[in-house]
Amino acid sequence: MNTSKITEIKSNNKFSNYWKEIWDYKELFFFLAWRDILVRYKQTFFGIAWSIIRPLITIVVFSVIFGKVASLPSDGIPYPILVIAGTLPWQLFSTSLSEASNSLISNSNMITKVYFPRLAIPLSTIVVSIIDFAISLVILICVMIYYAYIPSWQILTLPIFILIAILASLGGGIWFSALNVKYRDFKFVIPFIVQFGLFVSPVGFSSSLVPGKWKLIYSLNPMVGVIDGFRWAITGKESSLFAEGFMVSLIIVLIIFFSGIWYFRKTEKTFADFI
């Protein structure tokens, strides 16, 4: 057998071909995502419909509470559309965060028994959240048709904002998945982040409600920029996007993403010892 594959194992392994190796394992990555999708709705009555039902309930509740009961302003946009533009990226972010943070622990048997690039595990769980997100876009389309709401040209920029939302989810998910291996405290922290984040981020209301002088600080929450971007792309209202604030959020997203990968790479070699 003529082989050219040589593996070096050293104490301070600098995987020079880290990304190439992840590429070599891309099939495993798809298999893991495929497994999670297959397993997710096994033995559920509504099956895949859950990826519609879950955001739908949030949208209805928020539209009623914030739009009808609290009568918050919406710049003339139908309130449900305003809520959808916040709910979809938020659900992508929050499910990625909670699923990914548990992913390494729930696959601990694999981590202690076989080698593969560890990044495949949190990444594949996030792919599942992205697929859920794609399915729930159907709600947006249906509601827009119902209100006969015609989007402006900005809707074409939506993919950019989706990408930013995905980057934010990946960054957060990778950070917490790695942290959770060593510090199980995060299994208590994540539910709080998800719960508070829902009210702190402009999911159910427009961020134009935030007073001007606080806007920049408010944008330190990366989801503010992501959600505002979604609203801007969907509604086309200039008022919904606060440019400086958006840049702040974007920079934070990028920092979280790259530092997440850095931290993951730094700690992954010891996962098997701690998990």
Partner: peptide
Amino acid sequence: SRITNPTSGSITLNGRVASLL
């Protein structure tokens, strides 16, 4: 099988490795 890293030393593996732990 590269599940955990050594504290010191080095190993060279020549070829495709599969581990059945």
